[in-house]
Design a protein around this nucleic acid. Structure first.
Lengths: 194, 194
DNA sequence: GACGAACCATACAGACTTGTCTGTTGGGTT
DNA sequence: AACCCAACAGACAAGTCTGTATGGTTCGTC
């Protein structure tokens, strides 16, 4: 039943609990209890709760990053890729009971500022923006217009995630998809006119 | 020095501390100490910390709502009103040290679900969307297009707030304004063509 | 077979949390 | 004068939190 590795068990249950209720609302006592691990083992692998959080965010970011690379290298239309990305966000929200972005939630829930965590969050957010920018560049190669388009996708994605969490509903994501669709077709018309 | 009313003092310092560090990271001991109030007086006016939070959100929402009404009844161009609203968000972020929406932050920082607080947050968010929808209706009276436009403004506003907090910078808000400007001019062209 | 790493259980320190309780002070009203 | 009520101070309960310390067990490798 137990995974053999105590470190993996700790990270796994910490990931579950942090995404479920947020960094601030979960104590290490609960983490070690749910992962069936001794407290001494926890402090053997992690110097502090904050470092556990950092490690969790790093691993989450790494997974997200390789997924973005895979999507970009995949064959297929950039427009479809963007729409599909929003669709998978809907799935995520449904399975995670409408808790939004782990990174954003961690920022809100941090009691005191922690430079390494803040840096990791910035890194992650900028990489998401870059992902959308790459897709935008693919579908509207004209310079300044595609730059704005990518950032607009990014902001719509962030807003949709935030408000789906606040309103405990997926309609903001559907609305964001509608906006994205409209933006794409409008940009096509503009480039056809030029 | 002290305001005469203990209740007002408590609400004021609670508002400051909650917006500064979030609901979860602030205890009532700190609130009563900073407001120079006895603990017994606190529990005389508020049944619990959670109720204090609810009251704070209610008052914040009420202020926001009357401000929206004032803006809508003001003379002036709807387009300028939207842009100006984003500009005042930039001011807010600067003075509040890049802490984002109090309502969104409270959702992330809540340890356990609280129905009255969740309802208050939904109410507030829907009222912001309605505000943007009213402005969109003013500048593009065509039915379905203005509906989408208002929701797009709302999502861009939310995303800009969230990411300005995450990245501790105002560039997401500037980018959102650029997107809004582009959307408005595109919608003008579309209605001119029809 | 010996060494060391990883793991286990458990007790503890010290500071923190929300909320309760007792008792006092002082101004305003009846 | 009697009463009410807001506000005060401060101790207390019962529990939480992170992190440390002690000591014992299992297991792979030299």
């Amino acid at each position: 039943m137990k995974k053999t590795n105590a470190r993996e068990r700790l990270l796994g249950t910490a990931a579950d609990l942090f995404t479920e209720r947020g960094y601030g609302a979960v104590g290490i006592n609960e983490i070690i209890a749910k992962s069936e691990t001794a407290k001494a083992s926890f402090y053997h692998h992690f110097p502090s709760k904050e470092n556990l959080c950092l490690t969790w965010l790093e691993e989450t970011h790494a997974r997200s990053d390789t997924r973005h690379d895979a999507i970009l290298n995949e064959p297929g239309d950039a427009e479809e890729k963007v729409i599909h990305y929003f669709a998978s966000l809907k799935e995520w929200m449904k399975t995670k009971d409408f808790r939004g972005c782990p990174f954003t939630n961690t920022v809100s829930s941090l009691d005191k500022a922690s430079p390494p965590i803040s840096e990791q969050i910035e890194l992650h957010k900028l990489s998401i923006r870059d992902f959308f920018s790459a897709l935008a560049r693919e579908m509207a190669p004209a310079g300044s217009a595609s730059r704005r388009l990518g950032t607009t996708f990014f902001l719509l994605y962030s807003g949709a995630t935030t408000e789906a969490q606040n309103l405990r509903s997926n309609w903001p994501i559907d609305a964001a998809v509608e906006s994205v669709r409209h933006l794409i077709s409008a940009s096509k018309e503009a480039s056809a006119k030029a």
